[in-house]
Nucleic acid binder design. Sequence first.
DNA 1: TTCCGAGTTAATAATCGTTCCAAGTTAGAA
DNA 2: TTCTAACTTGGAACGATTATTAACTCGGAA
Lengths: 144, 144
Amino acid sequence: MNNKAQIRKTLANAGLKATVQRLVILEALTDNFSHPTAESIYRQIKKKYPSISLSTVYNTLEVFRQHGLVRFVNTGSVTVRYDPVTDKHHHLFLEDSNKIEDYYNNELDRLLNKFFSKNKIPNFEINDMQVQIKGRYSKYQKAN
Amino acid sequence: MNNKAQIRKTLANAGLKATVQRLVILEALTDNFSHPTAESIYRQIKKKYPSISLSTVYNTLEVFRQHGLVRFVNTGSVTVRYDPVTDKHHHLFLEDSNKIEDYYNNELDRLLNKFFSKNKIPNFEINDMQVQIKGRYSKYQKAN
DNA sequence: TTCCGAGTTAATAATCGTTCCAAGTTAGAA
DNA sequence: TTCTAACTTGGAACGATTATTAACTCGGAA
């Protein structure tokens, strides 16, 4: 199954109509692991689909978010960023470049789950957990 | 030593002039563990010190941040929140109320440090790390 | 196939949070 | 006490997001 068909399926599974706009936005998202802003998604799409409106991008991202197709990334800055990856993962915040990378580590997840099942936070029910790791790549190493 | 004197000292240590505005803002922050926004700090201060400007609050918070007196909290929403606690700690995001609480756990810190010294991220130098825990307090339990 | 209506989009206005700026004021060194 | 760099103020400007609304489009009923 090609990418387009997968994207259609994703929309259908979420119970969303497969409009052209949704297809291109979702396609842009799945191709893009740089945690884009709404604005940057808009610019990217605009090339191929010039009639799209920035409002549509915002609206659609919000619809996707409500249906679990994207997440907000917590950046601590003014602009919201989106993460097309809804699997469990963590984030590396690159201090030099203002970039964010996904970080996967199943072992870390297991460790945290184990820790919190032993050390419950009183009366608190955990739904989700994420580690934010701030730092930098060593010199002469490419970040990506 | 009383609170006011401590606050003066904090400013002096940071090499900052002890203006009235800075004193009241820092006082408001140290009294306030609810991770306030700039706006809410402004409203709080305005009662006692009506001539203060919102710009001053923003400017001052930024100066404090540069001097390590406060931190941004990464909320994933549009508005930036500030955290007067600069010790190592984590955050509970209460899904029902949009509140954020500090969460301390030395054992968790040790565990994470141990984990990442064993499992280094290739070429990446970690400077800071934070766990964001999302969830809710059980019914009939007060969140605070 | 046509038509209807709910859902969707585009354009633009409005709002919100934050930053910038020029002019006035002040803390604190000397 | 004087002087000056640092600071504050208010308002304008800005960028990001949300709201509004009229036009459009798709899928299903007839």
